[in-house]
């Protein structure tokens, strides 16, 4: 275990000095790696640890992004404060969805459909709100300053995104080691058994969906202030939800490092292939490849890449207890 921590510390230190040697374009790719690793990690809390599948996480990103924007617009609140309020709103919406789903015992596909429905309703509502630019989407004029979360070049965004990832890793690791996390895993593995041993299944699922929604929505503030353009058809769509879940699935659900590994594997591929194919006139081809990848991963590596890495790295990390 100690070797793994040392390795992670080393990786972190390398990532800290990377901006000194990398081009802005490369930094942009790293920012997307961190962004999707963070989102995947947030989704992982719900689906990876409790086994409740959500295909509507883009809803929370949208709530975070639009709430942060709205609070800046109306109250002049900087995004640094607004994002937490947005997070609480998203968490509250998560609790509503969770209440309907868990109280009425919706499982598997039924819960998936519930999450999709809420996300789609959210998307359609935002699409019709004039404040958010309706069908044109919302262009944000940047006012560069640290307080506004808006910067001229990629370096500050790089460190913020890295901060997001480290924050999520710490949260998930602490959660995993806590009683709550253990209950969550227990009810994932065998819900009836956990319940008969006195685990309050409803309560722990609600806690999981709240944390997951809250954390997901924090990424919305980043999205707003990094891209300066919000449109519900991109960031609140089901396609975006799929983007969110792809990396933790490929990396390994229900593990702390899975989403990060998945993002390091997939995001550069996705970003480079997207720009390459778009230039070559094959826009959308990268999504075809994604689709096949999703099929192949589930068929051939259902437990994610991390379980194979563990095997390969076990001599290096000898003495490590697998978690």
């Amino acid at each position: 275990m100690r070797k793994l921590y040392l390795f992670l510390l080393l990786a972190f230190l390398i990532l800290l000095v990377l901006p000194k040697v990398m081009s802005s374009y490369a930094l942009g790719i790293f920012i997307m790696i961190f962004f999707y690793a963070y989102l995947g990690q947030s989704w992982n809390i719900l689906t990876g640890y409790t086994g409740v599948i959500s295909l509507g996480h883009s809803l929370y990103v949208g709530i975070g992004a639009y709430m942060t924007y709205l609070l800046t617009l109306t109250l002049g609140l900087p995004p640094w404060i607004g994002m937490w309020i947005g997070g609480i709103c998203a968490g509250a919406v998560g609790l509503v969805i969770g209440f309907f789903g868990f109280r009425f015992g919706l499982k598997g596909v039924y819960f998936v459909l519930l999450t999709i429905s809420f996300a789609e309703i959210g998307r359609l509502i935002v699409l019709h709100l004039k404040v958010f630019g309706s069908f044109q989407g919302l262009f944000i004029t940047p006012h560069f300053s640290a307080v506004n979360f808006q910067f001229k070049d990629n370096v500050p965004y790089y460190y913020i995104a890295l901060g997001y990832v480290v924050f999520s890793l710490i949260v998930v690791r602490l959660l995993e080691r806590s009683k709550i996390g253990r209950y969550m895993v227990a009810l994932r593995e065998e819900e009836e058994a956990a319940e008969s041993l006195g685990v309050d299944v409803f309560k722990y699922k609600m806690i999981a969906i709240f944390i997951s929604a809250f954390m997901t929505s924090l990424a919305g503030a980043f999205y707003t202030n990094y891209l300066y353009y919000l449109h519900p058809s991109t960031m609140m769509s089901m396609a975006f939800s799929i983007e969110i879940i792809l990396r933790p699935i490929i990396g390994g659900m229900g593990t702390v490092l899975g989403p990060v590994i998945g993002s390091f594997l997939i995001t550069p591929l996705a970003e480079i292939s997207r720009t390459y194919f778009a230039k070559a006139g094959y826009e959308g081809l990268h999504l075809v490849i994604y689709g096949f990848l999703l099929v192949a991963v589930v068929l051939f590596f259902p437990r994610g890449v991390i379980s194979y890495m563990k095997k390969a790295l076990s001599p290096l990390l000898s003495g490590e207890k697998s978690h």
Binding site: L55, I242, I245, L294, L299
Partner: peptide
Amino acid sequence: VLPLVGMAMV
């Protein structure tokens, strides 16, 4: 769910 979602993308 996931492989068929993948096929939908394809």
